[in-house]
Simulated assay, not measured.
Amino acid sequence: MSNRPFVLWLIWQNQETRQRYHIGTLSSLNGEYTFSYELSGKRRTLIEAMENGYRPHLAFRDVNKVYKSNRLFDAFARRLPDKRRPDFHELLESLGLPKDYTDMDLLRATGGRLATDPYEFVAPIYRYGNHFDFDFFIAGWRYYEGEKALRELKIGEEVRLERELKNPKDKKAVVILSTKSGSKLGYVPAFYSGFMFDVIEKQDQFYAKVEKINYNAKPQLKVVISVVGETTINEYEGSDFNIIERLEFV
């Protein structure tokens, strides 16, 4: 398959209901940035968001237009930390990013979150045919045994993903365990846990491993897990919104 774009989904949260909606998609490929609103018939996308109080971003007023630029759109670039701040290099380290990071890397690591609005960027699960793959930072790292197991973890090491059926807060929680020690490292983030819960329940094939370790990063950004697998799940409807970015064979 040829080079694929770096995709981030723009999420809007209704501050009253706390419901999240996938309102738009930002992508970057070969130096070109593209942004468009999500107009599909899937639930929790733009149309439903507008029915629940959302109004198009002032920088992207036309919901039917595909916006393109040779640099990150100013409306999103303003969400990135200022490179002129004296502690910027320390900030990159805390985010687990190398010096040759891209704006999309930084946008993903920070989520582009501001205290003044309800927007956030998240990375989707990529799927083409029955194949799927995605990666994520372990959720809840600081609250479990991840820190104790950190020095034992190796890049490329397999980890176990298991359903946690009696979790009182999430009926589709998926816990991450060290294959070697059995230590509880944390959880698959809620954005993705419903999908993985269903994959495990169907006994579909997948492989999860430690993709990256950022020893000096913030707790929630220390360990990246990557997952690849095959599934016959047609549509995912288990979470707040469909997190799958479908790709075509090329």
Rank of each mutant, 00 (worst) to 15 (best):
V224E: 11
E248N: 12
E158L: 07
L177H: 13
E51R: 13
I47T: 12
F197P: 00
D170N: 14
A208C: 06
K184S: 02
S27A: 13
I23T: 09
R44C: 10
R142Y: 03
R142V: 09
Y144G: 00
A208R: 07
F137G: 01
T179V: 11
A217F: 09
V175N: 02
H131Y: 09
L221F: 11
I200Y: 05
Y101C: 03
G41K: 13
L95F: 15
S69N: 15
I11R: 02
G194S: 15
R151S: 12
A115R: 13
N64A: 11
Y128K: 13
F197T: 02
F197L: 05
T179H: 12
S2P: 12
E157R: 02
V63G: 01
L91V: 10
L91Q: 09
E90H: 06
N214H: 10
G229P: 01
Q220D: 15
S40F: 11
I125Y: 01
D240K: 05
Y187Q: 06
D170W: 02
P5H: 05
V66W: 01
Q205K: 11
K171T: 11
W12P: 03
L247V: 07
W12E: 09
S36I: 05
R142C: 02
V188I: 15
P86Y: 09
V174H: 07
I176D: 11
R127V: 05
G31E: 10
G112D: 04
R71F: 12
K171E: 15
F73M: 02
P86D: 14
L46D: 07
R71I: 09
E145A: 12
T17F: 05
Y33T: 07
L107P: 01
E230D: 13
P81H: 06
Y21V: 09
S181Q: 12
G194A: 15
L221E: 12
R142H: 10
S94R: 15
S69R: 06
D82Q: 04
V223N: 02
L26A: 07
K68Q: 15
N30M: 08
L92M: 08
D204V: 01
R55T: 13
F6W: 07
E211F: 11
E230S: 06
Y54T: 02
E245M: 04
Y37M: 05
E16W: 06
E48P: 03
Y54M: 10
S69T: 03
M50A: 03
Y207Q: 12
Y215V: 08
G53W: 04
V174D: 03
D133W: 11
I155M: 11
K83V: 14
E120L: 13
L161E: 05
K212F: 12
R85Q: 15
T231L: 00
L58T: 11
G182F: 11
T102D: 08
I244P: 01
T110N: 10
E16I: 13
D87M: 04
L10T: 07
M1C: 10
F191D: 10
E90S: 14
E162Q: 08
K202D: 14
E211T: 04
Y192D: 03
G194N: 08
G96H: 12
R108P: 00
S193E: 09
K180A: 09
